[in-house]
């Protein structure tokens, strides 16, 4: 078993898993970073209730939205996502005090970064909800899907 490999100061290049690239059928790809305590719980509750959701969203579990930085969001966009959203706890109710507030500020930062190079800022958003609030999670998902579907696919070099 490999021991903890720490490449000092550098970010390890992610390995790409070899599948054939998906045919461009106009379907958008949206990556969602969901916090374990609230949003992912709301997502599970939504699933259990069999609420139909658009297939564009792929979820990534993080312990807290505070774990997500500009690098993760920007990499998602660079590697093929047309939109990225964060879903975390309600303001004032983060299980780790104020992680969600840091995440909100970082999303604002990424939005400004995108704007400065001519990319639509609404490709990146953050929503807050409580673990019991499945309707809010559904609303966030659908809203993101609608927003991104209305934008052209994000082109990348």
């Amino acid at each position: 078993m490999p021991s903890a490999a720490r490449t000092g100061g550098a970010v390890a290049e992610p390995e790409r898993f070899a599948t054939e690239p998906a045919a461009d059928d106009g379907e958008r790809t949206i990556i969602g970073f969901f916090c374990r305590e609230c949003a992912y719980a709301a997502a599970d509750a939504t699933g259990n209730a069999r609420v139909p959701l658009p297939t564009t969203v792929r979820s990534v579990l993080v312990p807290c939205t505070g774990r997500v930085g500009p690098l993760h969001v920007m990499s998602a966009l660079a590697e093929g996502a047309d939109g990225v959203f964060l879903a975390g706890c309600l303001e004032g109710q983060c299980h780790y005090r104020e992680g969600n507030l840091s995440a909100l500020d970082r999303i604002a930062f990424v939005q400004r970064l995108l704007e400065s190079v001519g990319v639509e800022r609404e490709r990146v958003q953050m929503f807050t909800m409580s673990a019991a609030d499945s309707p809010r999670f559904v609303a966030a998902t659908k809203r993101m899907h609608a927003t991104i579907s209305a934008l052209p696919r994000l082109e990348r070099r």
Binding site: L71, L77, R156, R157
Partner: peptide, 12 residues
Amino acid sequence: ALGAALRRIARH
């Protein structure tokens, strides 16, 4: 890495 990612999607 952030810069490289930004460059890939930048429009200007």
